[in-house]
Design a protein around this nucleic acid. Structure first.
Lengths: 212, 212
DNA sequence: GTCTATACTCTGATAGAC
DNA sequence: GTCTATCAGAGTATAGAC
């Protein structure tokens, strides 16, 4: 019985198991997010985790299983900010608050952002189900909320789904293209702080309904 | 003497050499853009090019050389739209025209966009020089143009470099995250056509200087 | 110029000692 | 639970026949 197959077990994982599993996932996040699934190697991950390769494979049955565990854990975190958008709130404030939360995710979890970007770039072979399932459903729901706000004249007229795309694109760019952003900005800049201000202005101007 | 080492040669490459080199680069673009440098294999590339692996390595000395050739060719194309931004033109029209050209690149060359994205995601190990050289210089130059427009009151006040980031993020998103975009939009949508209209509105509202 | 054959290394995964 | 040893297959690259 390996640590990975915990479902239905009565025993709790030991402290060592928790520690090693966590170390593996931390190391795997680092390596997968930089090289993609196929470009990453178990040797790299095991090294970074301070374990031998067979020992890593004692905790997870395969490379695929490590990757899948990371992606599954990621998706919930990634959708939470959108889920928190409140239909009963003030429209413009809700959107801008969503943008801020999403940008904070990019700043605090850039490797998770790149892991996700890598997976989508490669055609989302291991996550397409989640995208066409949970994500699409949540987007449909929230797009309806935005369209209702627009119909009520409380938000400028924009295509709701493309508005969401623009939020994702703009916030994730600062994580995924971090190297490029920091190369172009000079050293004394704080990309994420500046992005926060800029995106606040951008979505304010885009979405503020024209006074009647 | 291989076809790759053409510098200084008197002989022109034969038709067969041209054809095979082109086939290799086309195949390599397909594979590298989907799997990244390390995830791509020469077997895949040779197969897609209709050549044997040793034959591929007759035209290029290494996997790295194929990749580098692609990146070098890409960078010029990628910077052209920004280069074409005319300091003497009407500011808002110039920016919106740049956005349109960049979006057209994403639509017509999505694999090139993903190749670039993959490289940046991985920390730009093979292209950092170009980014901190040519790209940074061009951005510095064009940022100055934008800042001058703003100082003259012909464009709303925005941080120039973040404006450029937002153009890149928004246009490239439709190429790089194509799978996700098409999964979320229903089948009868044309993502790039809709994006064109949306981005036109977005940058219009963001940049139109308030009437004095 | 192109192919077959192959050298040599890396990679994911397993066996079995401790 | 962890290690050494090892396997089978895939990976980049080269040698040499034609």
């Amino acid at each position: 019985m390996t640590a990975y197959q915990l479902d239905g077990m009565i025993k709790q994982p030991t402290r060592i198991q928790q520690k090693n599993t966590a170390a593996i996932l931390e190391a795997a996040l680092q390596v997968f997010s930089q090289h993609g699934f196929r470009g990453a190697t178990l040797d790299q991950i095991a090294d970074a985790a301070g374990l031998s390769k067979p020992n890593l494979l004692y905790y997870f049955p395969s490379k695929e299983a490590v990757h899948k565990t990371l992606l599954d854990g990621l998706l919930k975190t990634w959708l939470d900010p959108l889920r928190a958008m409140n239909p009963a709130g003030e429209p413009l404030a809700e959107i801008k608050s969503y943008v801020r939360r999403k940008l904070k995710l990019s700043r605090d979890f850039p490797r998770e952002s790149r892991l996700f970007a890598n997976e989508i770039l490669q055609g989302a072979p291991r996550i397409l189900d989640a995208i066409s399932g949970d994500l699409k459903q949540l987007v449909d729901e929230k797009a309806a909320v935005i369209e209702a706000w627009i119909a009520q004249g409380r938000l400028a007229r924009v295509p709701a789904r493309h508005l969401l795309f623009s939020i994702w694109a703009l916030t994730q760019h600062y994580a995924d293209f971090d190297v490029q952003v920091r190369t172009i900005l000079d050293k004394d800049h704080d990309p994420f702080a500046e992005a926060g201000d800029f995106l606040d202005v951008l979505f304010d101007r885009l979405l503020r309904a024209a006074p009647i």
